[in-house]
Amino acid sequence: MEIKVLGTGCAKCKTLEKITREAVEELKLDATVEKVEDIQKIMEYGVMFTPALVIDGKVAFSGKVPKLKEMKEILTK
């Protein structure tokens, strides 16, 4: 699984990255987590509200930071 955290570097974006990594670790997923800060790359996903999460090239959600529990549900779907 290829996970990307899209965000320009605001506080929320950092929190999302942290939660994503925690969830991946706790679920022992075979996944890479990458932070995308370049605005042009972010726009390629059509995201207008950061932070956003992209799983395998698809936008899972944007503009929010879920709790760890919700994040696990999103990643295991």
Partner: peptide, 13 residues
């Protein structure tokens, strides 16, 4: 919903 840190992606979008 808006936060100033999202002003740029929103503008571009």
């Amino acid at each position: 919903p808006f936060c100033s840190c999202s002003a740029i992606p929103l503008f571009l979008g």
